[in-house]
Design a protein around this nucleic acid. Structure first.
Lengths: 92, 92, 92, 92
DNA sequence: CCTCAGTGGCATTTCC
DNA sequence: GGAAATGCCACTGAGG
């Protein structure tokens, strides 16, 4: 489709239409991402279901995962703190 | 634990170890999925930030998205209702 | 109430007793409300039972009710969105 | 509106319309009850909010209420059991 | 008995 | 940073 014809103004790119299209695009991007996020959530539920059927309690697993997450976050904070010290002392 | 081979004791596949490995695998699968989920959440925040910097209010966008989601859910429920009617009337 | 009388100490309104009484009142209010809520749940079950005995499937009824609820919620969200647009445009 | 005219058959009380009206009534009864139920739930939330603002922890209050409920249910069961014994022994 | 929807509670996130 | 809202999980209770 060519944009060279001024005759097609009625469906053209007025500023309002431009904004409208832009908004539409942004919303669809979010929706797509949300969709993928939901699928991952569903995958996670599946893993827990599988675990449960093998005899592992999902509740306990969640606890473990929470703890490991806290651990790794604490470790990262420690490292950031260390870097801060180093840079303060001109050691980076 | 089998006593048939003394050599494999330390790293052997006793039932307990088997369960332990299985649990470890499951937990790592969940952690990987959670990781991806977080990245998507981050992507979504980015889109909203970008939208905001272009003059669109995230609050409005969220509302629009919520409405669109409700619509599609309503449509799905409609279909379920229809199936229910059909099954009630022996048409399935 | 005055603390000048030593006679009323044992059952008096010390700060602790005051808090205790207040807590008791709050808890009883919740319990009363929960009670009424349970009665309504029971009434609802009765209606479904009656419907079933007249030949209507509760499952279908629930689905219909769910849909109607979604509709009314969608309507409310529509209005909120409109308000949001208005406030975005300084029309409120 | 008069029911004396046979001319109004098209909107009349055919068996299907009768069933339809009956269903409508049942559904509206349920919806009304659900509505009241929601209002009570809202009232309960309000009480907890009020309690919280006065310094009581809702979480603890919920615990207390749960325990008291268990107690009263246990007591009722005890009494039912006692009645059963009595009737077995011709003491009612 | 067992599945499943509904509901309350909790945690995270978001907005002010 | 604190309050409010949203989404998620566990649990209870109803229905098959």
């Amino acid at each position: 489709m060519s944009a060279s014809s001024a005759l097609k103004i009625s469906a053209g790119t007025t500023p309002e239409n431009f904004a409208k299209e832009r908004l539409k695009t942004l919303i669809e991007r979010v929706e797509r991402l949300e969709e993928e996020k939901s699928e991952l959530a569903s995958d996670i539920r599946d893993v827990y279901a599988e675990a449960k059927s093998t005899g592992f309690e999902p509740k306990v697993m969640r606890q473990i995962i929470r703890l490991r997450k806290m651990d790794s976050e604490a470790r990262m904070e420690q490292e950031e703190l260390l870097d801060l010290y180093k840079s303060s002392l001109g050691m980076l």
